[in-house]
Design a protein around this nucleic acid. Sequence first.
RNA 1: GCGCUGGUAGUCUAGUGGUAGGAUCACAGCCUUCCAAGCUGUUGACCCGGGUUCAAAUCCCGGCCGGCGCACCA
Length: 552
Amino acid sequence: MAFIVKKKINGKDYYYLRKSVREGNKVRAVNIAYLGKTKKDAEEKFKKMEKKKNSMENKNVKKADYESTDISIEDMTNFCKRKGFVYPSGDIYGGLAGFWDFGHLGVEMKKNLKNDWWKFHVQEREDIVGIDGSIITNPEVWKASGHVDSFSDIFVVCKKCKKPNKIDKNELGKVKCDDCGGEYDEETAKEFKLMFKTNVGEDGFAYLRPETAQLIFTNFKYVQENARMKLPFGIAQIGKAFRNEIAPRDFMFRSREFEQMEIEYFVDPKEKCPYEIGDSEILVYSDENQEKEEEPKKMKFKDALKKGVIKTDWHAYWLEQELLWFVNLGANSDKFRIRQHTKDEKSHYALDTWDLEYKFPFGWKELQGMANRSDFDLSQHQKFSKTSMEILDKDEKKILPHVVCEPSQGVERGFLVFLFDAYEYDKERDNVVLHLHPKLAPVKVGIFPIVKKEEMLKVAEDVRDDLKKEFNVFYDTGGSVGRRYARQDEAGTPYCVTIDGDSIKGKDVTIRDRDTEKQIRVKIEDLKDVITQGLRGEDIMKMGKMVDTRKK
RNA sequence: GCGCUGGUAGUCUAGUGGUAGGAUCACAGCCUUCCAAGCUGUUGACCCGGGUUCAAAUCCCGGCCGGCGCACCA
C-alpha cells in the first residue's frame, strides 16, 4: 500500500510517495515518486496518479486478464475430484470405466450449462421448441434409424499374422488385414453391439437410446402440429444417451453414459436460410485442406460460404451460432475450429458433415457433429411405422422436410471445454483460479464474517439468508479469510462478500472480485444489484467505492 | 479390443519380504478485522483375487482402474 510522507531536506519540505516492500521477513519503506513541495500539491498529484492507475488497470482487466494454464487430462480429473466437480462412478469399489458422477459443484455447473444452452437455443428463439423423450422406447425405432443393423463393430483375427482388428460389418469378406494383407477369419468374427440392451416386463427387451435424435423424429408430427410450427423450425432436447464403447477415454470426453443437447432443424430444401450470418471468424479445415495436407485457414463464416467451402447457408449459420454460444459463455474462440468430414468418414445417412472442434490437451476433438441428414430419418420412420411424416409447405403442398443441420452438443464435452478454458494456476496467489463465466459458476457468492464474533456472525447470517433467495451462496467461517478466498477461487465463485466490524455499525460490506482480487465497499441493501448487474469482473468496480484492505 | 506403462490417506509423496512415515487438504479448539499466517489435537492409505513363502502392500499370475500409442468413434 502506498502512502504520502513529508521529508525535510535543508530546512525545506518535500513530499514523496512511499511504498512498503517486503524483503524476507523485514518490511521497509521505499520512495517511489516525488509529489511536490506543499501538502496540497502532493495530495492532488497523488489523486491523479491513483486515478490513472485505476483506469489503466481497468483497461487491462477488460482484455483477457488471464491465460488458461495447460494441464493434462489426468490432472483435470484429479482437480475435479479434489474440488467436488466430478468423481469416478462407484469409486470406492474401483470405479467403472466410462461412467462418472457429478459432485456438489459439478451438478450446479452442469445445470447452469444446460440452462444457458436451452435459453440460447430454445427460449430466446421463435423457431425452436423442446421435448423430453424417454431413454427406453419401442425397439422398432432403432431398426428404422439403422442403429440395430449398423451400430456395431466386428472383431476379426487375421488368418495369416493372427493380428486382431475391428472392421465395419459391411466389410466382412471384402477387406484384408492392413498389416500383412492376409484374410480375416470369418468363422471367429465376433460382433460387438454398441447399444445397451435391457429387459422390459417378463420377456420383452429394449435398448437404452444411443442418441436423443430419434425421439425428436418420432414425435415430429405431434410437435409440429401442437406447437403450430412452420418451416424452417427445430425441435430441441436435452437428455441422457448410452453407448457401450469398447474403449472409453480421456476422462469424461468419451464415456458410456452421457448427456446430449440436441436440435434437429427441419427445412424446406427449396428455401434459403432467412437468418443473417455475422462476422465471426474461425479456423476452417475443409475436406480439401485435409486431402492436400494443408493447414486450416482462419476466415469468416460468411466468406467460407461465399467461396463455397461451406456448401449450404444453413451450415454456415448454425456453425456460427454454436461458436457464439461457447464464446458468449466465456470460452476462448482461438481454441475452436470447424472441420469437414472427409468422404471416408461420413455416416450412413449424411450428405455433408462439419464438426465443431476444440483444442484439448489431448488434441483437436469433436464437440459437435453437424450432419446434413437430408430426409433420411423422416422417410425411414415413415416407411417402418407406415405413418406419414409429411407436412404442408408455404404453398400448401405436402413435403417431407429435410434436416440440413443438427446442432448437437455433448454436455460433458462442453463442461470440459469451459473447465479447461477457465483453469489458471495463479503463481502469485499460489492457488488455482477458475475463471468461469458467472452464469456457469456453481456458487455465485461466498459470504465470510471476517472473524467469529457473535454480532458479526449475526449480520453475516442475515446477509446469507437474504442473498440465498436469489443466488447459490456459500457461507464460510473456517480458517483465515485468505484461505476462504482461495477456496472460492478454486470453485470459480465470482464474488466474495466479507462482513467486518464496520458492517455492524454502517450496514455496509466489502465485495471482492475473483479475477482481479479488487474490493469495493457497498451497502448491504445494494449487494443484490451489484451481483446481478456487475456480472463480469471489470464491471463490478463501477458499482461502488474501491477499497484496499490488504496488508501485503 | 491390442501394445507399452503405472496403481501407498481426498491430493502429492517416502519406504522395506517382517502390515507404513511425511507434506497438504479436511475436521475440532485457540488465535486472527482482508488474500491458503501460527499453535494444539483428530480423522484418513498399501486397488482386488489367487499363487510362492514361516511371513506379501513389497515377488509371480490374473482381474479392475488410469495414462500413452494403435484401432474405433452415428
